[in-house]
Write a protein that binds this DNA or RNA. Structure first.
Lengths: 216, 216
DNA sequence: ACCTGAACACCGTTCAAGT
DNA sequence: ACCTGAACACCGTTCAAGT
């Protein structure tokens, strides 16, 4: 009843498919073996153990991330376009990105984008440590947004809902319209673009970062 | 060999201690039982199962989060102070915060801070949906930073290091000082304050959010 | 070089039985 | 009302044995 020879590539492919469809918890060695039609222990010969199998999947994801090219006229617009593209790519593979994050390889994954951002910040006239700060601020902004967004999506029914919580506030709200707006659902794309634009304006604009003062 | 009567409170306390010291994976029902000096199955009577035990721990963390009060003179400074305090609180209990995040209760946990931010944004003269957008942008900014920071700390030795990656760049870097700065280690506190300040300036300042245009 | 089943030490959970 | 041990169906991993 021998099947065609098992390859490391085949193991990785099937494992990746399992993760994409049902999340990382669904990737058990026994289930993977069943999917492949082999004995559980054969997998060990090809990939070592579960941990290094996951490592390999993560490595793959990092490599998969397509190169991102900026679009737009001004440096600010081009930076925002990189941020948007980045967000899009990350959201296309949530499970695998989460695994990259858990393994602390987010930095690695972001390198191509970082290069693109660096070029734009340079074009905007910033140099040295100040320029680096802008690159990093944008990078953190993007990763942070994606992580928070994903979190929000995974749990659409908060209990109690924000609405309810705001209604039970002890102090009267200063602005009913604000209260209503905070109780309403979020448009993540919109919030994302608004935030990135504000951050970039704040960093590139006349009020830019003040490297020497630390007090709030 | 009967010990004093087991209480739900005692179970939660011991479970929380285990998580704080060794992370959530260390919290197995058998280990918890050993720590408590009872049979594994006794725990089930008090907390149902592992899942609802974790739920209870998360609920506790949300409740534990101390009320945060703004400091400073201008609304912008007061917003930044809330952001810093928030970051500090979150970083004090990383494992539990991660669990709150995984369970999608980040929103809930942030409500007190959200109220404080709302008041400051109101004081800064913003109203309605625009004000709400600022509150949310700052909130995401803080959570995002904390998540990314924690990720960076958990894996101090990136392989290959950023330095190495930048050195192997195919295109010549436009700014050697920028390249050097990006290869150097990050000061997270500094990056955080710079980013929040820039975001707040960008949102409250003259270039504020433009709610109707969506193009980058 | 590659694959296998048996075995080990773990899990979370259920359940009938105790007091 | 509270606690217990036995049992079940899972894990990841090791290892001696096969070809």
């Amino acid at each position: 009843m021998a099947r065609t020879a098992l390859t490391r590539e085949e193991v990785l492919e099937t494992a990746a498919a399992l993760v994409k469809q049902h999340g990382p918890t669904a990737l058990t060695m026994r289930r993977l073996a069943a999917e492949l039609g082999t004995a559980v222990t054969s997998i060990y010969w090809h990939v070592g153990n579960r941990e290094s199998l996951l490592d390999a999947l993560v490595e793959r994801t990092v490599a998969d991330l397509a190169a991102i090219t900026p679009h737009g006229r001004t440096p600010a617009a081009r930076i925002v376009s990189v941020a948007r593209a980045l967000r899009h790519e990350l959201r296309a593979r949530p499970h695998l990105v989460a695994m990259v994050h858990e393994r602390g390889l987010t930095e690695r994954m972001f390198l191509p984008a970082q290069r693109a951002l660096a070029q734009e910040v340079h074009a905007a006239g910033l140099r040295g440590t100040r320029a680096a700060e802008v690159v990093r601020a944008v990078q953190v902004q993007v990763v942070g947004h994606v992580l928070v967004e994903r979190n929000r999506e995974r749990s659409p029914a908060q209990s109690p809902a924000e609405t309810e919580l705001w209604q039970t506030a002890t102090t009267d709200p200063p602005d009913p319209a604000l209260t209503r707006a905070l109780a309403a659902p979020v448009d993540p794309e919109r919030l994302f673009v608004t935030s990135v634009r504000a951050l970039v304006n704040g960093l590139l604009g006349p009020h830019g970062p003040t490297p020497d003062r630390r007090d709030g």
